[in-house]
Design a protein around this nucleic acid. Structure first.
Length: 849
RNA sequence: GCCGGUGUGGCGAAAUGGCAGACGCAAAGGACUUAAAAUCCUUUGGGGAGCAAUCCCCGUGCGGGUUCGAGUCCCGCCACCGGUACCA
């Protein structure tokens, strides 16, 4: 398909040539402070792409969409006098490499290296201005050494609630530091995936199935490494505030963290020494609590169940245990539960209320027990209706005719003793105070967010820098980093929770008495801090040099933001996973004084998904996958780049169109022919139409309007309209003869960030000095945009009836008079009286009759 | 259910509350050519009147509203796409 087709311009010859040139001259290398060539007088700009997982399938057209956007911006910023950091690397630990290794027996390191070479080659063929000297690879020991080091920072720290930040564990005053470390071991119910042979984080489980592969996941208690992300729940929410992120992403994170203010209330269990603590966001409805529900797994169930109910309760618990999470959610339509036979005492009025167990109460949230207020909670209402439990209204809705049954909104307290008449908000405060004064409860805040399950039973991941001795864990010294995984023949999961690393007996044995931890870290670990490593990728003494970190990640004197990556572009799929984990690690490093900004990513933009030509999601099975290599072979990298940007707004989902690529390719060919003619023997030579003449007034207006619009559009990432404006520019000059050389020169500068190969080649062909990429961005002349005469629209009652040419300096009165005198206006207002005339200077006149 | 996003020509789309459809694709006609490709020029939201230059009516998912003026702002719906799901 790509072979014999005549090229509209010789992109095949020029693209490889310029890519080679940039490579050998390291054109886009950004020196660090202190390095030769570093210019301290320039401001910095850090543009970051989400680095890819180098899969065997190679790059697809979705990757380069965001990459092209950042590439244009970074080239633009560079031309505007910034020191630009624009790096690329590889998130190369992960399941697919390991599964491929299991299938073929090839070491994951081998396939990973091969895939990286393929990806790098593909990215270079698109002509991205990455600083390849800063390439990072999460599987490189020189890299993961520092991933392990950061893990140890977490291990050696605790979150001090008094200072609201992480501190060295040595400042912890309590007797058991292991109970407060940010990295800790716990026996917890985890998501165990038998098919993958590993546990998964909550974030990696979608509707009871593994995100990777869609295998069933079951819950079982296991000893695992956890990271105490919940300590940061509050800051992870509140510090979203100042970030320039899409509101929808901020909301997604807030919902994921799930902060709820409420109260804990203790209910004494009749005839036992026990009391059940419940969490509620509606303590104001306490008078309406007509029963309690414990999660089936709640520790007190066996203690309080009466002998008569024992069998029924056991059976119910057994039933829940055998159900997977998936079944539990599938069967969630109908509420189930059994009474324990026990009764509790409602502390506010002494009411005797039954205690039930039901699986609609979750063990992992709050206290694993609730007070049921069926009148004001839809789930409790459903349950109470089914089992004939009493329903007692204690909140009166504001609008009286609203059905109070199941009313979950706010209103006025009724049937609530001393709370009667109080609006919901006040009633919450009052009852909380009442409970606190009697030590029956207290105001609390709950989060949906759980601690981050951080260990995996995999081979292809970072080993933990931890050893065990007599049941106790301890860190290995920094001097033993990096801790590389052992060489083993068999990467297969053991099928049991025993990790594959345990097969490497020699490696596991640390000393006579100590053995190594055999779990590995999840894939997220490496991506939690790669943006920091880019700042100083070769540093062997520190995860990132202090000065480099301060320069690239620090607050810019010119900007009001507290620092961090200036622009981060990537897909929405990382809204709550990578972006939350990275913020967490960054805050820990910030608290410990290792980085200078509290947030890693100041401005975030999500590129939209590119659909197949049929408007469907691209997939192998649909056969609608577009391969960037094919597009580049047929139309060239510049056309590929420009088309991806011309398709529509960056953040929007949009379908691929081959004819659309052709259109953009034609545009680039027209640019080529502005400068070049084809002679008799089919060679491209300098166009005869080019001349050293000044653009005329109309041409000049297009030139300066385009400089203005393209610059503004790049800043707002509106690349589609920037390209449209450059098309207008080209259309203006295609027919011009003589054709001002200066106009072509300016166009090459404006187009360079979009089509770097084509513009660099023409720049050289026309004999201009140096590289276009090194030119300063052109400035526009506002005076050139001003017309001597303005065309105004004359409207009658808001409908356009005529147009009017008036001098630029015409006054409102003169414009009004001219409009009223226009033949059309006369016609339309003939037998009517004019009620009002609105003059919008420079725009229109509206005559209201 | 709940939360978020999006609805504009045949298609991708554009439009600080001020000429809806820029720019591109597709389509049709023409020029060049022995021919085709490529290239260049013209037309292209729908309907209507006129020999014509032109002119009129309708039109941004639907129904209301604010305004001299609404694709844009407000209220109420509908459809599609994403996310989420017993979080008390």
């Amino acid at each position: 398909m790509s072979t014999d087709r005549r090229k509209p311009y010789p992109f095949d010859r020029i693209e490889a040539k310029w890519q080679q040139f940039w490579d050998t001259h390291a054109t886009f290398h950004a020196p660090n402070p202190g390095e030769p060539g570093f210019d301290a007088s320039k401001p910095k700009y850090y543009v970051l792409d989400m680095f890819p997982y180098p899969s065997g399938a190679g790059l697809h057209v979705g990757h380069p969409e965001g990459y092209t956007a950042t590439d244009i911006l970074s080239r633009f910023k560079r031309m505007n006098g910034f020191n630009v950091l624009h790096p690329m690397g590889w998130d190369a630990f992960g399941l697919p490499a390991e599964q491929y290794a299991i299938k073929t027996g090839q070491h994951p390191a081998v396939t990973t290296a091969r895939n990286i070479d393929m990806f790098r080659g593909q990215l270079k063929r698109i002509g991205f201005a990455y600083d390849w000297q800063r390439e990072v690879n999460t599987t490189d020991p020189g890299y993961f050494r520092w991933t392990q080091w950061i893990f140890l920072q977490l291990y050696h720290s605790w979150f001090n609630p008094a200072s609201n930040r992480a501190e060295s564990i040595t400042t912890y005053p309590g007797p058991d530091p292991d109970s407060v470390r940010l990295a800790y071991v716990a026996e917890v119910p985890v998501n165990w995936c038998p098919a993958l042979g590993t546990v998964l984080a909550n974030e990696e489980v979608i509707e009871g199935k593994s995100e990777v592969g869609g295998h069933p996941v079951e819950r079982r208690p296991m000893r695992q490494w956890m990271l105490r992300i919940t300590a940061y729940a509050d800051r992870l929410i509140s510090e979203l505030e100042g970030l320039q992120w899409p509101e929808s992403i901020k909301l997604l994170q807030r919902n994921w963290i799930g902060r709820s203010e409420g109260a804990e209330v203790a209910f004494a269990i009749e005839g036992t020494p026990h009391s059940v603590r419940v969490f509620t966001t509606r303590p104001d409805t306490l008078f309406g609590a007509t029963y309690l529900v414990l999660a089936p797994e709640h520790a007190l169930v066996s203690e309080i169940t009466t002998p008569e109910q024992h069998a029924a309760v056991e059976a119910y618990q057994q039933g829940c245990r055998s159900k997977s999470d998936l079944e539990r959610t599938e069967l969630a339509k109908e509420k189930t539960g059994v009474p324990t036979g026990a009764f509790a005492c409602n502390p506010v009025n002494g009411q005797r209320i039954p205690v039930w167990i039901a699986d609609y109460v979750l063990t992992g949230y709050g206290t694993g027990a609730i007070m049921a207020v069926p009148a004001h909670d839809s789930r409790d209402f459903e349950f109470a209706t089914k089992f004939g439990l009493p329903i007692l209204q204690v909140v009166q809705p504001a609008s009286p005719d609203e059905d109070w049954k199941g009313f979950t909104g706010e209103g006025t307290a009724v049937h609530s003793g001393f709370l009667d008449g109080l609006p919901t908000a006040a009633a919450k405060k009052e009852i909380t105070r009442w409970l606190e004064s009697r030590s029956l409860g207290k105001g609390t805040i709950q989060y949906k967010l759980r601690d981050w399950l951080f260990s995996r039973q995999r081979y292809w991941g970072e080993p933990f820098p931890i050893v065990w001795e007599e049941g106790a864990h301890r860190a290995i010294p920094d001097s033993e980093l990096p801790l590389t995984p052992p060489e083993i023949e068999d990467f297969r999961p053991t099928g049991t929770p025993e990790p594959p690393l345990s097969k490497a007996r020699d490696w596991v044995r640390y000393s006579d008495r100590a053995t190594r931890e055999t779990n590995t870290m999840p894939q997220w670990a490496g991506s939690c801090w790669y943006y920091l490593r880019y700042c100083d990728p070769q540093n062997s003494g520190r995860f990132v040099g202090r000065e480099a970190e301060r320069y690239w990640m620090g607050a810019d004197a010119a900007s009001p933001t507290p620092g961090g990556v200036d622009l981060y572009v990537g897909g929405t799929e990382h809204a709550v996973l990578h972006l939350l984990y990275a913020r967490f690690w960054h805050k820990v490093l910030f608290d410990l004084g290792h980085v200078s900004s509290p947030e890693p990513f100041q401005r975030l933009v999500n590129q939209g998904i590119i659909l197949g030509e049929d408007g469907q999601k691209m997939s192998k099975s649909r056969g609608n996958v577009v391969n960037p290599d094919d597009v580049i072979a047929d139309y060239g990298a510049d056309a590929f780049r420009c088309y991806e940007m011309f398709m529509g707004p960056l953040e929007q989902m949009k379908p691929w169109s081959t004819t659309g690529v052709e259109g953009v390719s034609r545009f680039l060919a027209r640019v080529w022919r502005l400068a070049m003619d084809e002679n008799q023997s089919g060679e491209w030579v300098r166009s005869a139409a080019l001349a050293e003449v000044a653009p005329d007034k109309a041409q000049n207006k297009v030139i300066h309007a385009t400089i203005k619009k393209v610059g503004e559009d790049i800043e707002t990432l509106s690349f589609n309209t920037a390209i449209a404006q450059m098309m207008i520019y080209v259309n203006t000059f295609t027919s011009a003869s003589p054709r001002p050389v200066s106009a072509v020169r300016t166009l090459l500068q404006l187009l360079n960030p979009f089509a770097p190969h084509l513009t660099e080649e023409l720049w050289a062909q026309l004999g201009f000095e140096g590289l276009v990429a090194d030119q300063p961005w052109p400035a526009y002349d506002p005076a050139a945009l001003v017309e001597d005469e303005l065309e105004l629209v004359v409207q009658i009652n808001g409908k356009v009836r005529d147009k009017l040419l008036v001098p630029r300096e015409a006054s409102s009165q003169q414009i009004e008079a001219a409009a009223l005198a226009s033949p059309k206006a006369r016609e339309w207002t003939a037998d009517k009286s004019i009620r009002k005339v609105i003059v919008v200077p420079g725009k229109l006149v509206n005559i209201v009759v």
